[in-house]
Design a protein around this nucleic acid. Structure first.
Length: 475
DNA sequence: TTTTGAGTTGTTCGA
DNA sequence: GTCGAACAACTCAAA
């Protein structure tokens, strides 16, 4: 017997129909369930361009989710406005007794949800959030002293030790006939209605929605055993490419962890470890919200940067003269995705070769990555900048030429994104400025067809080491 | 409380 | 070309 007459399920970063905690709860506890998604004008206004692949990804995924809901007798109400206005307004319009959502852990989202909960409660409407986005929430994995972990390996060990099959059980979504409410209007906004334009998302192509996630997952599972061997080589199809789906919840984390756990061997284990990293950084952000805008390790708050606008622009546009760095940046600009190895390399290069503040690079990634996640992006940048957990500046200055020789030995990836270097033979493609004048004349003149290196790595490295030592000594 | 072992993803140097 | 050690000491987490 339903305890609630009407409930509203507010979808945010959980754009799927199956294994959905809030929807599952609503269907089992309410007689009638409405579904809503809000294109939040406060978030959309902050985007750098009116052509945004994330908005388009959401739009396609939402359209598919709407079709699924309609097949079950319901449908998605889509609003365009401030979520803090739209959700309470809609809840009152529909006369619901409760609003259900899956918990979001980002500081801004927590504030928004607290405000909405307060507004709703004035109207006697309950706002209830559920664990769905993670296997373990921020306070579930703690040291024996009850404190949050700040080192990954012990965190991961504790995480794996705690994991039981029950944690991965899907939240069933069963809609009895008539349980899902049909929206009063079946109008679904176009991208143009939202003030956005089409991007190259579908040409890339990036498969969207639940079906896209399923397709990618099936493909990845056929090569998961080689994941640990292939994932570091950007020219290879090594990764799962599921990050954007995890970001917008078109597949559940329980499903992915379940697939990893159903297999043994170094491939699945390495991949599972990446999924644990995701929760590690969620947890770091939750317990240390100051990492947004500040070094996790306070001693590196005083690091000196040059912030040379010309060097920053060269980095952004992929014309630093270091081919693999440029290839990575051009991949990001052209597709909204960058291979993980290249995220590390380009980040290290910006901070430790160009001496630009890591926060500028963090923001550039935030504006462009289709799979952007605040916690992971911040954690990644602080790791690369050696200001984060496990800061080791002496260890972590990538040599852009060595990385290129190691991870793109034949230059296949470089040639894909830096066509100027197509004619350059493999032995010179990692450092084309070392070619003789005769060789350059044959295919690529450095300084004319492709930029000369914007900095000398050796010299930049020495300056970096000095600055980190100084910052540490000054604390 | 003290001690001990370890710390995502590297690079360089010298044998 | 390949290998192991040093990098520089510190903090974290567990015993």
């Amino acid at each position: 017997m339903p305890e609630i007459d009407r409930a509203l399920v507010w979808f945010r970063r959980d754009l799927r129909m199956g294994d959905h905690a809030a929807l599952s709860q609503a269907l089992s506890r309410a007689r009638r369930v409405h579904c809503v998604f809000v294109f939040d004008t406060e978030l959309l206004a902050a985007l750098p361009s009116r052509a945004d692949r994330r908005v388009e990804f959401i739009w396609h995924s939402l359209a598919e989710l709407n079709r699924s809901l309609r097949e079950s007798g319901g449908g998605m109400i889509v609003r365009h406005g401030r979520a803090s206005d739209e959700i309470p307004r809609l809840a009152l319009e529909l006369g619901v007794n409760a609003v259900f959502a899956n918990r979001d852990y980002e500081p801004a989202a927590c504030e928004r949800d607290d405000a909405i909960a307060a507004t709703l409660s004035l109207a006697g409407i309950r706002f209830q959030c559920f664990k769905d986005q993670v296997v373990f929430e921020c306070d579930e994995i703690l040291t024996r002293e009850g404190k949050p972990y700040s080192v990954f390996t012990p965190y991961k060990n504790a995480w794996l030790k705690k994991l039981e099959p029950a944690h991965l059980a899907p939240h069933p979504v069963r809609a009895a006939k008539g349980a899902l409410a049909r929206p009063p209007s079946d109008s679904f906004p176009t991208l143009g209605d939202l003030g956005f334009e089409r991007t190259n998302l579908l040409e890339l192509p990036v498969p969207t929605g639940m079906s896209g996630a399923e397709r990618l997952l099936a493909d990845f599972l056929s090569r998961i055993d080689a994941y640990h061997e292939r994932r570091d080589f950007p020219a290879l199809k090594g990764p799962s490419y599921l990050s954007v789906h995890l970001r917008f919840g078109t597949v559940s984390i329980r499903r992915l962890v379940g697939e990893a756990r159903a297999r043994s061997g170094p491939g699945p284990e390495t991949w599972l470890s990446e999924l644990v990293w995701r929760e590690f950084y969620f947890q770091i952000l939750h317990h240390h919200p100051r990492v947004v805008g500040h070094a996790f390790r306070p001693e590196y708050e005083t690091l000196e940067f040059d912030n040379d606008p010309a060097k920053f622009a060269a980095w952004c546009e992929g014309r630093t003269g270091y081919p693999l760095v440029d290839a990575g940046m051009r991949q990001l600009n052209r597709t909204g995705y960058m291979h993980n190895r290249l995220r590390m390399l380009t980040a290290s290069f910006l901070v430790k070769d160009l001496h630009v503040d890591w926060r500028r690079g963090e923001r550039y990634f935030a504006e462009r990555l289709i799979d952007f996640d605040l916690a992971a992006n911040n954690g990644g940048w602080q790791w690369a900048a050696s200001t984060g957990c496990d800061a080791q500046p002496y260890f972590r200055i990538f040599n852009p030429v060595t990385q290129s020789e190691k991870f793109d030995a034949h230059g296949d990836f470089i040639r894909r994104y830096v066509p100027e270097l197509t004619q350059v033979p493999p032995q010179h493609i990692h450092a084309p400025w070392r070619m003789s004048a005769l060789q350059q004349a044959a295919g690529c003149m450095i300084g004319r067809d492709y930029p000369a290196p914007v900095v000398d790595h050796e010299a930049a490295r020495e300056i970096t080491l000095q600055r980190y030592a100084r910052a540490k000594a000054a604390r």
